[in-house]
């Protein structure tokens, strides 16, 4: 995949051979090496290697690039905008978003355990949820998590209602602003659950 906000379009163009001699270094490298999923971070060794690959590829490809490949200007038919369509779109979208999902409650949680299959892939996650001081453990399929789960990861559990369906939704918690006492208490609760002892 290329490194452009536009997305995949230029990748497909480049795969089709529509690239310029001065063109897109990263995407050229990706297309040239076939590693469309891998994006080396700029400045890294992988990135420098990709750029050198590009330079080598460019010097080979430049001779085959037509000198007048791109049309200079494009005449487009224009029409007066009625101005109606976009007027209230943001407001309408906002109302739909507010209506779409009702968050009934939110509680802090922490990953206790990640169960894995024989291949080592995560299958389910056990989460400790702290509900107004009462701690409870829930276990959910890995499919319910849209992010990479790590042991001891801090989460927020939302009780959400979509249409008539109520369910739990998990998201990554931002770092909590806990003082040392609260931090110690949370640690002790988690370790107690892990070892099976009372707090």
């Amino acid at each position: 995949m290329m490194f452009s906000s536009v997305g995949e379009d230029l990748v497909s163009q480049e795969q089709a051979g529509d690239r310029t001699a001065t063109g897109d270094a990263m995407s050229f490298a990706s297309a040239a090496t076939g590693h469309l999923d891998v994006e080396p971070r700029q400045g890294s060794a992988a990135w420098r290697k990709a750029v050198s690959t590009v330079m080598a590829a460019t010097s080979l490809g430049a001779a085959t690039t037509p000198a007048l490949a791109v049309e200079p200007t494009h005449f487009i038919h224009v029409e007066e905008d009625t101005g109606e369509a976009g007027l209230s779109l943001a407001r309408a979208l906002s109302e739909i978003a507010d209506r779409y999902e009702t968050v009934l409650f939110s509680y802090p949680a922490r990953v206790l355990e990640i169960e894995r299959n024989l291949s080592g892939d995560p299958v389910s996650v056990t989460v400790l949820v702290s509900v107004d001081g009462n701690d409870t453990v829930v276990r959910r399929s890995i499919r319910q998590f849209n992010f990479d789960i790590k042991p001891d990861m801090r989460l927020i559990v939302d009780g959400v209602q979509r249409g008539g369906i109520k369910q739990l939704a998990f998201r990554v918690a931002q770092p909590l602003q806990l003082d040392q006492e609260q931090e110690d208490l949370l640690e002790s609760i988690v370790s107690a659950f892990k070892t099976g002892t009372d707090v």
Partner: peptide
């Protein structure tokens, strides 16, 4: 008809169609 720089826009913008 007005002129715009070809090659500037990504194909999500459909420069071949009319614009408002």
């Amino acid at each position: 008809y007005i002129a715009l720089p070809a090659g500037l826009y990504d194909d999500k913008f459909e420069v071949h169609k009319q614009i408002e």
